[in-house]
Simulated scan of single mutants.
Amino acid sequence: MTIQPVGQPKGLLLLLHGFGESPEYVYAETELPKEAVRQGLLTVLVTLQQGWQSFYVDDASQQTLADIIKEVQSKHRLADKKLYLGGFSLGGSGVVRYAELAMAGNSLPKPTAIFAIDPPLDFARLYQSSLHQRKHGKVEVAVKEAQFLMDRMDKEFGGPPTAQPAKYVSLSPYSYTDTTARHANLLKNTPIRLISEPDILWQMNERNRDLYEQNTIDCVSLINYLRLIGNTKATYVPTVNQGYRKQQGNRNPHSWSIAEPKATVAWLLTN
């Protein structure tokens, strides 16, 4: 889904939806695309090769994303304009992963700035927390999600992190156990904004989840490390009581709504 602003675009924004979503769902769920267009950005809601089932950090997904960026830049003559990327959940994971790969070489268009909404970044952590939820959780929706994630990670990584530790480090946008921080180091000069809503009581009461089972731990860890190595444009934004699913009409801290549209787009345009 491509939305063009009035007049010549100031830049390009690509948005990656979460697992199980579609561009149409995102457009109805958040004002982010509309705000970006109002601010003069040509905005594309991206669907990758596996559609709503895309895992985003795998090589095929990353290649598809790179191809889409190049195609849009060429079609709309935006190769010399600023490139912004944003994503939700696994889509956010894909955004961070792409930025790292782009900064590692010269073959991919480099983003000017990126943001991600509550993305899992350390998949070894996600696997272990999912295993804990599957064994001990008592909320059906959370237990089923944990089992699904484990099955998908077994497929994508070739097994659990205990069996494939190198693969988890290789594909995770951030790995807390990687003492070389090889992926994080690639983002030393990249403006990055990570957003999450660490509503501990909601997670405990509604999903039987503890802190280790929340993506916030990955977001804070990455941003803190980037600040330590000198990235002055690495920002973590915690929100309070902003997480709601608009179309479902229910409370959920893991939602597009925690990224306030005007503030998010304004931050992009400062870079």
Rank of each mutant, 00 (worst) to 15 (best):
R209Q: 10
P161I: 05
R182L: 11
M153K: 00
A163Y: 04
M204C: 06
A184M: 08
P161Q: 10
G137H: 04
Q133C: 01
L131Y: 13
E213W: 00
H183C: 09
L149F: 07
T179K: 13
D154T: 00
Y174H: 07
I195C: 08
T216W: 03
V169L: 12
A163N: 06
N205P: 02
N215T: 05
K135M: 12
L194E: 11
N189W: 04
M153Q: 03
V141D: 08
N205M: 15
F157Y: 03
H132T: 07
D218H: 01
P198H: 05
G158M: 03
V141E: 13
R209S: 03
P173K: 08
E140N: 10
K135G: 04
G159L: 01
M150T: 00
P198K: 07
I195S: 08
D154H: 00
T190A: 14
L201W: 03
L187R: 09
N215I: 03
L171C: 03
E197Y: 02
S129T: 09
I200F: 14
T216P: 04
N189G: 13
S130H: 01
D151Q: 11
Y168F: 00
W202D: 08
I217N: 10
I195E: 04
S130K: 02
N189M: 10
I192H: 13
H136K: 14
A166R: 10
C219R: 05
K135W: 15
S170N: 15
A163H: 06
Y176H: 15
P173Q: 07
D154M: 00
K167D: 10
L194S: 10
V139A: 04
R207Y: 04
P160E: 09
H183V: 12
E197G: 09
T180V: 07
S196A: 11
V220T: 14
R152K: 11
D218Y: 03
K155N: 12
R209P: 02
A184D: 04
L187G: 08
Q164W: 04
T179Y: 08
E213Q: 02
S196I: 11
H183T: 09
D210Q: 06
E206G: 11
D178I: 12
L171Q: 08
H183Y: 12
D178E: 05
Q147H: 01
R207N: 03
S175A: 13
R193A: 13
V141P: 01
R207I: 01
M204E: 08
G159K: 00
H132N: 06
A166S: 13
S221F: 01
Q203I: 01
E156D: 06
A166V: 02
D218C: 14
Q214E: 06
N185G: 13
E140Y: 09
Y174F: 15
P173C: 06
I195H: 08
L131M: 13
L131G: 12
S170P: 05
H183W: 09
D154A: 02
D151V: 01
T177V: 15
S221N: 14
R193V: 09
R134L: 04
M150N: 00
E206R: 10
Q203G: 06
S175I: 02
V169N: 15
E156N: 05
I200E: 15
D218K: 01
E140K: 13
Q214R: 11
K155Q: 10
R209T: 02
P198Q: 05
K155M: 06
P161R: 04
P198C: 01
H183F: 12
K138Y: 05
E197A: 10
A146L: 01
E140W: 09
N205E: 14
